[in-house]
């Protein structure tokens, strides 16, 4: 997946699942949209679907600390890279 495709998938996820429409890429999701721990766990599940494999505990822990859309995009990129899927 390209970075743009990841971004589009993430933004779509936020609209459909978290009812957050077009958040700024650097907005603090927790402070601005009340994106809480329960949402973060739901996000992990959706990211697992996106990358097509389960995340290990360390990766899940990392995800819980994410605050912005840009961080999520970078995080998903790193997951793809770790799974040897080429990101353009």
């Amino acid at each position: 997946m390209t970075r743009e495709e990841i971004k589009s998938a993430i933004l779509n996820m936020f609209k459909e699942i978290f009812e957050i429409d077009n958040p700024g890429l650097d907005d603090n999701l927790r402070e601005m949209y009340q994106f809480d721990s329960i949402d973060a766990i739901e996000l992990i599940r959706e990211i697992e679907r996106l990358v097509g494999s389960e995340l290990n505990l360390e990766e899940k822990d990392q995800a819980m600390g994410i605050r912005t859309i840009n961080q999520i995009i970078m995080y998903v990129e790193s997951l793809f890279e770790a799974r040897s899927i080429r990101v353009n």
């Binding site: 721990s37 329960i38 973060a40 766990i41 992990i44 505990l57 899940k60 822990d61 819980m64 600390g65």
Partner: peptide, 17 residues
């Protein structure tokens, strides 16, 4: 835990899963 950031995250993840 009400807040799963930091060291409580694994408890929260296990419970929610």
């Amino acid at each position: 835990p009400s807040d799963a950031y930091g060291k409580h995250s694994q408890i929260m993840i296990k419970n929610m899963e």
